[in-house]
Design a protein around this nucleic acid. Structure first.
Lengths: 222, 222
DNA sequence: GTTGACGTACGTACAGTGTACGTGTCACTC
DNA sequence: GAGTGACACGTACACTGTACGTACGTCAAC
């Protein structure tokens, strides 16, 4: 049995969260999983809150960014946004921690640095780049929250949500008519739709008005 | 003393959350605030989770939507988005609950209905309207999360975040250069910036690719 | 070798949590 | 009266985070 260490504790916490949900986490369960006394954890971690911060940082730092400086800047933005979203697939339960608590660690700096560099190389000014980055982060975080919110804790098969189809067609005609679309949730498609929309937005922002773009091709993506 | 009722319990919970933070909430504290035994609450609320759901629903239902059908549709979208964001000002601590748990109540239907109606009147198809609405919700929720995340619980004056200014300029040149902008957080301005960006995006989307509008359904996305 | 300091694993203990269960007290219907 | 439900309440249990004291290493100085 290797010696107890901060990294092992964080790893056990992540595994426990992914296995049983974020609500089921407790210092005693983690200690039991490690075959160790409860208070031994406190030799490596000052508190439970600090441990959760470490979990969030650990997850965030595992984002695999593969940047291709030769690619079109719109494609680079797309890739970075998708990379961020990947954590929702690898660590769906832990993602809630990442988005819930604001990071107070330097683990978030490399993605920020890369995003800002990409935007500035695309031609945006510093202030604009910061604002655009914030907008993208808000969108991505909001998307992740919706995705992981579908299965927040143990995910019982209670698909018995409030069905839009049950909405009164006279009170909510739009909701009633579009009920099939509202019930269908293809996270992949929804995310890509929003991403396209936002990239299109900053494209026109960069190019100025619509007329100035002339006959440029309109980014048709299959 | 009026009789104990579900509405009074929810109101006390909201007040307690706003006063002492979402972490400090407990059935015993709520009961004490109401001058009532703990278990009496369970005559009106099945569980703590259900109570928190009711709190989220209560906050959400208090959004003041003022729609002006005569206004330009872009302005109507703006107003609805701002109305949603208002809850972050009235109930900053409770907002985390609203965005954290997915609503399983019909309280969220009126805003959805209104938004869909606005988008369709603007000329969008049903599928497009749903996707656009989802994208906006993701952005708004992400923005709120960042705003309320600044003061998640009791908000001790620990402004000692990881200062971007402390970033190594050789490792993180962009972060170091833009540190003043990254540290400044004007939520109002940031939100309006992103909102502008997204409305611009759907404007160009509505106008087609700056040329011929397909006038056909489909939206060109598989 | 002895002594001390020190880091680490551990057990106990305490205050606090959500809530299952039983008990008491009303108002109201037979 | 008896019976019925709704409701406020107290007790009890399993569980939480963690402060505190204890025990057992290893290493330095003597």
């Amino acid at each position: 049995m290797p010696p107890l260490t901060r990294a092992r504790i964080v790893a056990a916490a992540i595994e426990l969260i992914e296995r049983e949900g974020a609500d089921a986490i407790s210092m005693r369960r983690i200690a039991a999983d490690l075959g160790v006394g409860v208070m031994s954890l406190y030799n490596h971690v000052p508190s439970k809150a600090a441990l959760l911060d470490a979990v969030a940082e650990g997850v965030l730092s595992q984002i695999a960014f593969t940047d291709d400086p030769a690619a079109e800047w719109t494609e680079r933005v797309r890739i970075q946004a998708r990379a961020f979203r990947q954590i929702a697939h690898h660590y769906p339960r832990s993602t809630m921690l990442v988005v819930s608590r604001q990071l107070r660690s330097p683990a978030g700096l490399p993605p920020v640095e890369r995003a800002l560099a990409t935007l500035r190389e695309a031609g945006f000014g510093g202030a604009e780049a910061v604002q655009i980055l914030r907008t993208f982060i808000a969108y991505i975080v909001g998307s992740l929250l919706r995705e992981v919110g579908v299965a927040p804790s143990f995910a019982p098969p209670q698909r018995a949500d409030v069905h839009p189809a049950a909405a009164d067609p006279t009170l909510f005609p739009q909701v009633a008519e579009l009920a099939p679309l509202l019930e269908e949730v293809d996270h992949e498609k929804a995310f890509e739709f929003g991403l396209d929309m936002m990239i299109k937005a900053i494209e026109v922002r960069l190019a100025g008005t619509c007329a100035a773009r002339g006959a440029e091709r309109g980014g048709a993506r299959g």
